[in-house]
Write a protein that binds this DNA or RNA. Structure first.
Lengths: 259, 259
DNA sequence: GAGTGGTCTAGACCACCAC
DNA sequence: TGGTGGTCTAGACCACTCA
């Protein structure tokens, strides 16, 4: 029985106890969580699929169901997994999800709105500018893909996005692929490039529309726009996308929850 | 043993099983959570104080430690309680907290910043306008307190706030009280009026500065400003404050985390 | 009815803190 | 040294889903 084993006997090889030999205590369920995360990262289970049942995982890792449970609890709280009682535990996905855009916090002032239409402006291979490179942990001049697109609500332009992606992760990304694809862009990233967006930080400001943005968003130059700079991360907090959005907030607002 | 009792025997009188006799299932720990919330609301334990230990609570409610544990877990996740290993579980507070403003998501572009200075503009008794009344579940014309204040960073005005509070909850609130008080306003609300802010929703937009706001924030009229409309709630999701802030985001940004 | 996640219990032991 | 929260186990039973 594990209860009789010496403290923190680390049934799992390596994995925990990084760093010096100090009092580095890592509970079993955190170690299990790490193993589950690795399996997710290595695509052992794909987005939308069910992972093995708690009992199976408990057997695999030689721990009790309760311990696996706690690991899964945390992953579910972080939106990496989704639990469905009676059915199983599933890998979270940006595709085939009821909420069309999981990371887009824009809400129309009136009504729920019939969703947003996408319009691709361009998709180019470019070299990383210094600022973009730094945010993404790349080197200035590294290969990147730059995408510009717009979102419209009932034909009215609302969002202008400029997206920077590391070239080495998105080799085959073309305007054609983007245009053919149905559903959220992050869904395409998952299925076609194996890149899953887990978490993001946004920096929000009010800015005045420059000439180009004003024209594209069909507002007078100098109009106040919401500038939303998003840095998205995949597993293990690795940044993999930088995005700068300009939102016209005359008919929509950015919603947030504090606690 | 409780395990032998009939299903959902609701050891706690009343409390659960609201509504029809249907399959209204409420797990024990949710009921405990409700009882704990009520004790918090009734100030049985005050902000900053420790609540009884898990064992004591388990005895009081006649459930196992694991069950109160799960209740406390959820309350801690909602930031109503704070756990400190080896010391106890404490009632969350907006005062005496390391983070000065728990609900203010404003971050300076450079450096951590030496905090913000407060400046009270005015504090008046007014009648509720229709819109404000609706948001707070009051009737148009009800007594309210309106506070206007500014926040400065190193002497530079950054935030202009207009705050609406239900008059019946904040009877003794005066400009003097606000000026005398040290620390966050929500701390004052807790200690002096027994009103605890638990959760808030914000609606964020980019707007152009009107003449008055421009003067107060020392920016040119028409400058883009971040408009942050916050509806704050206390226990049981009761709305108790409406606040409209205008942020100058030329040296600061609003930070947000997505997942 | 079989399988999954969800709840609840009881008990042991560990890590952290204060006295 | 004793108390608190934190981890882990083992086992029972409940609620939900689907064939």
């Amino acid at each position: 029985m594990r209860a009789m084993a010496p403290p923190n006997s680390s049934l799992l090889d390596a994995e925990a106890q990084a760093g010096a030999a100090g009092p580095n205590f890592s509970p079993l369920y955190k170690q299990i969580k790490g193993l589950l995360t690795r399996s997710l990262q290595s695509s052992e289970w794909k987005p939308g699929e069910a992972i093995p049942s708690e009992m199976e995982l408990a057997a695999r890792y030689k721990v009790s169901q309760g311990t696996v449970r706690k690991a899964i609890d945390e992953l579910a709280a972080e939106n990496l997994l989704v639990r469905r009682q009676g059915k199983g535990t599933f890998v979270a996905t940006h595709a085939e999800q009821k909420i069309q855009y999981r990371f887009l916090r824009l809400t129309p002032d009136v009504g729920a709105g019939p969703g947003l239409e996408r319009q691709l402006l361009d998709c180019r291979r470019v070299r990383a500018p210094a600022e973009v490179a730094r945010s993404l942990g790349l080197r200035t001049g590294d290969a990147m893909v730059q995408v510009r697109r717009m979102l419209h609500a009932s034909g009215v332009p609302v969002v202008l996005d400029e997206i920077w992606l590391p070239g080495h992760l998105f080799k085959g990304l073309t305007a054609e692929r983007l245009n053919e694809h149905r559903g959220p862009m992050y869904g395409l990233f998952e299925t076609e490039f194996g890149v899953r967006m887990i978490r993001a930080e946004e920096k929000i400001r009010a800015v005045a529309a420059d000439a180009l943005s004003a024209e594209l968003l069909q507002v007078p130059p100098g109009s106040p726009l919401l500038s939303v700079e998003r840095l998205s991360h995949t597993y293990h907090d690795r940044p993999v996308e930088l995005r700068r959005g300009l939102y016209n907030t005359s008919g929509h607002f950015y919603r947030n929850e504090l606690s």
